[in-house]
Nucleic acid binder design. Structure first.
Lengths: 331, 331
DNA sequence: TTGAAAGCGTTACCAA
DNA sequence: TTGGTAACGCTTTCAA
């Protein structure tokens, strides 16, 4: 194992521990010649600082937890990817924590930040997390929340303007000549789902579109229920806005199983703008969330938090990704 | 912050640090009454052990790194999910590390295990990692490798029998009456891709199927190239085995864009058996990898490693997931 | 069964 | 600018 510690380097370099420490942590506090010598000796010995010991002593680490409900949803996977990149670029090490939608786990992870001496943590809640737990720690520890507006303005957030996104979708469909436009919600209880649901109702009202909300039986596979409901509608909607890309996938898949085709029989627009949608059949039109920005800004908000500034609330603009799952209404 | 430490508990309980420590870490080494008293006081104070300090002192932590190339590939996302669950069930905390296919990063992460005092680490290499680096640490630190056979028998591995998988796919297609069966490779250089490529050739030979390997231009989107090649074939294959589900998605999507349909115009079978395939259009027939077992066994192998047993090499059996993207050849 | 003391690898403060 | 000392929160001998 031959684990080499700071004292080994000190001895080999003929200086004191503290000098070695400074050579690494505050280079300016040590004479250039000394520093270079120390660093060279350290390199020869294959030495590198022990982050655990550092964290313990300093009372702060570079471990930033990113708490997500489910990596299996490509949205969170993409989010994890971009956030990890942003974190790394700034010297943090992202610790991905998967809660599986479990509220208790989320709270556990947030409280574990404590003992990891994390400078801050990032939570991307899907199902409604225990707000109590979250907030209790959010005050003391530092948490930034992605994709969900908090009641508590002390918690910084990055979100995407759902209303604008739904508007974009609706206007796209309207422009294509559709007027009977349904909405396919995902798992209810999800915060973003609720948000988009509200947005749909407002947008529909504003554009004088009679709202039709498809019911999904809360089961494993939402496709069949949604499609059943759609087919039962007395006047079948010609287009549907899915609350997220996965729901759009499921509906299109189910439609296909029944010999129906998208966009010929139904125009479908998703929400998220996953890269995966470009490989779907048909290529999925979707409201794109700026996932890269989401991750980067979350990190920046975290840094703002430790810098002691006031908590920020950034709202990002979604955009329209027009691919092939929507088409002009043929009358 | 009122961070409560072991000494606080000791004082409040009227015992010594070491007693508190033992009450948590080796319950049997302390009298029942004392233990309960200590634990109760600790609970009242909201105390919990600091894992960093523990690791530092013990020289070993419960942080297990899982190093994956890319979470955006749902295979790794599903793998991460199941491995995290298996890890948690056994008291480990999984640290997900994304390398983006970067060999250097993989080596960095593996060497970082050192300073994290990880008992072992799990690597799921996609692109060919720097074997040197990997092995150098693999000896001292303990690494188990997922989904890739190592030259070095000292490194424990869990893999899935590719040859068997390709065989399953081929036999399924043969049974459906196909005889002109192509293979669509993914990114070349990937270990598993190579493995499956070889397996295809062997299986084709064994079944007297003339091998047709579709060429993918090494670009971002493999669909168009693959489909182009397929269409250029003098005698068009009636079925294709994709080297993984993502490739199958891409091909089917591209086929759809060109007005062709699966499985009517071409039967497509994937490889991985992603849950996502059940929501594809059409629902994707695929060779299923036992992802859950992969994760669980990786953890078990790691534990075997720390127990000092000989390195194990587990080979898992794939199975066939028949959905709707393949159909009988209509002559 | 419990207490005391030393130490894991680092940093912060105070002297020199 | 550098060295010494104490401390971070815990575990592990060794005695009692």
């Amino acid at each position: 194992m031959a684990e080499v510690s700071i004292d080994d380097v000190a001895k080999a370099a003929g200086v004191h521990r503290s000098t070695v420490s400074r050579a690494f942590s505050k280079p300016d506090a040590v004479r250039a010649a000394t520093r270079e010598h120390v660093l060279r000796v350290a390199a020869e010995l294959g030495y590198s600082m022990n982050p655990l010991a550092q964290a313990l002593r300093r009372g702060s680490s570079n471990l930033v937890p990113l708490i997500v409900p489910d990596l299996t949803n490509p949205f969170f996977a993409e989010l994890a990817r971009t956030t990890a990149a942003a974190a790394e670029a700034r010297g943090y090490q992202l610790m991905l924590c998967i809660t599986d939608g479990d509220t208790g786990q989320t709270a556990d992870y947030v409280s574990a930040m404590h003992s990891m001496y994390s400078p801050f943590g990032i939570v991307a809640p899907s199902t409604r997390v225990n707000l109590e737990a979250l907030r209790r720690y959010a005050f003391q520890n530092r948490v930034v929340v992605i994709d969900r507006v908090e009641d508590d303005p002390a918690v910084p957030t990055v979100t995407v303007d759902s209303a604008r996104g739904v508007d974009l979708a609706l206007e796209h469909l309207l422009g294509l000549g559709h007027s009977n436009i349904a909405y396919a919600p995902g798992i209810v209880g999800t915060y973003t789902a609720q948000d988009r649901w509200d947005a749909y109702h407002h947008a529909a009202e504003r554009h004088a579109v009679p709202p039709v909300v498809l019911d999904a039986a809360p089961g494993a596979d939402p496709g069949p229920g949604l499609v059943d409901h759609w087919m039962r509608e007395p006047i079948r909607p010609t287009a549907v806005i899915a609350s997220n890309d996965l729901i759009a996938f499921a509906m299109i898949s189910e439609l296909g199983s029944r010999g129906l085709s998208v966009p010929a029989d139904l125009s479908v627009i998703g929400f998220d703008g996953l890269d995966l949608g470009a490989q779907f059949n048909p290529r999925l039109t979707s409201v794109r969330q700026p996932i890269t920005d989401l991750g980067r800004i979350a990190i920046e908000l975290g840094e703002g938090l430790i810098a002691g500034g006031p908590p920020d609330h950034v709202v990002l603009e979604p955009s329209l990704l027009i691919r092939s799952s929507t088409q002009e209404l043929r009358s």
